[in-house]
Each structure stands twice: as C-alpha cells, then as structure tokens.
Design a protein around this nucleic acid. Structure first.
Lengths: 123, 123
DNA sequence: CCAAATTATGCAACTAAGTCGCAAAGGAAA
DNA sequence: TTTCCTTTGCGACTTAGTTGCATAATTTGG
C-alpha cells in the first residue's frame, strides 16, 4: 500500500509485512490510544494475536509505539510522540490525552497515567 | 489484638475479622505500596487469596486503601493518604512515592503513575 | 449467654490478556 | 531460483485476579 511505510520499515531495518503495515496504519488513523481488540477491529487483514503482540513489542522496542495500561487491565497503544499524560476515567473508561507540567522529576519519565473521574462524570 | 482496629471496623460498619485486621496491620507498617504476595509474606495469619482480594476491594470501596498497577501487572496497595504520585522504574521495578504538582486538571484525580527510568538506573 | 441472621472464609474451578514453542510460510539478497 | 533468516499461525500455556458454593465466624436480639 503506502510506500511511506515501506521506507519506515527500511529505516528501522525490519522486514515489511502486511501485518506490520496494517497495525501502523490503524494507529496512524486513530485519534486516541487503542487496545488489541480495537486495533483488530479496524484492521483490513486478519492476524493472530501472537503476531500482533510480537509486532507491537518490536515497535515499542524501536521506539515507534508507546504503550500503557488502562483500568481494564489491557494495554493501549499509540504512535510515539512527545511525552504526554493520559487521563483515564474510572466511571466512563474514556482515555484523554493531556499535557501536564510535572515540574522537576529526577530520572526519565516515559509514561504518565492519571486515573480518576473526568469532568463529565464528575457531577 | 489492637483495639484501635476494632474501632476502625466499627466506624466503617464492617465486621472485625483477623484476616482484615492482619491486612491493615501490614499496610500500616509498610513504607511503600505492596502487592498481594508481599502482603501475604508479612502476614501473621494464613489467608486465601480470594479472601484477600475481597477484603482489599472492600477497603478500597470504603476509601481506606488505594491501589494502582505496576509494570509487573500486579496491583499494589497502600493505606489512603493525600494523593501523591508513584514513580515506577522499568529497569529495577522499584516504586517511589513522590509529590507532583500537576497544575490545573479538570475532573478529580485519584491516582498518578509515572513510568520510566529512575535516577539510579539512568546512567 | 445462647440462637438466629448475616457476613466472611476457604476451596476449587474459572477467566482472560498476554506469552511461548514449533512447524510452515514469507521476505530479502545473491 | 535458491538459500537464509525472519515472521506467522496455531494451540497450548501462564498467571493475577474472580466467582460460586458450602462451611465457619461474627454480630445482634432476646
């Protein structure tokens, strides 16, 4: 499909497969982090979950994808971008991306997850 | 054992059992959040995991205990106190409590988890 | 102090997201 | 095309946490 993706795979020195291309395409279109089931639904090709998880692990290892866990005990994935926080509402389970300023934190932060009640559910 | 705990249970209108008392005692002494296995190790009485999880769920529901998940996919528990952040090092898996100032966040935040590399592991 | 009513416990079976080994299929390079 | 190496699909497995049910413990009212 997209030649851009072909180049991406070359850059990272991994083989081009339809499975990998499909995962990245779904993540590219998504406007919020998605879990395995959600990605699977949006995918044009069928793929075993083992394949999915192995590829997403590789993407993560290469720094292409970022993951975190929501309160449903599932991993959510998104394409890497600047480090931002995710707010997870424990009532409606919606995930919201947000920028936060942590001030000074020692060490290197790669993931920020806030849980609580979002303003819609907070009556 | 401790009469203070007896009163605590009365206040929250739940029955006093050695299982419950034992869990709270361990959490009281702990200086960092603990998971089921760790709590079990420090406990004076034997207790089925079902009992543990049911009780800890009750404590949580009553606001006595706060839980969050680390990168080992296990729940960590601590007695409720002021909302603070937990930094989880993905190298050494140590959990550090820390105060962070998030600035203004809409809604109500009950849990803040940062993941990354702590300053000891960050060479 | 005892019996009834209610709640908690232990056991074992279950759940489900994610992992792993292996044989077969697919991609890259020559 | 042929060879080499990587990826895929399948099924079996792992494991933290959950659930149903019979039994045991706690509370309460007389």
């Amino acid at each position: 499909m997209s030649e851009q993706l072909q180049n991406v795979f070359q850059q990272y020195d991994i083989k081009f497969t339809t499975a990998r291309a499909s995962i990245l395409e779904v993540l590219k279109v998504a406007n919020s982090p998605l879990n395995y089931e959600q990605i699977k639904e949006h995918m044009s090709v069928k793929m075993d979950k083992a394949t999915f998880y192995r590829n997403i692990a590789k993407f993560e290892e290469l720094g292409m994808v970022h993951k975190f866990e929501s309160d449903d005990r599932k991993w959510y994935f998104e394409l890497s971008s600047t480090t931002h926080a995710h707010f997870i509402c424990e009532q409606c389970h919606k995930i919201t991306c947000m920028e936060v300023d942590l001030g000074k934190v020692e060490g290197e932060v790669t993931s920020i997850v806030l849980k609580g009640t979002c303003k819609e559910c907070h009556s």
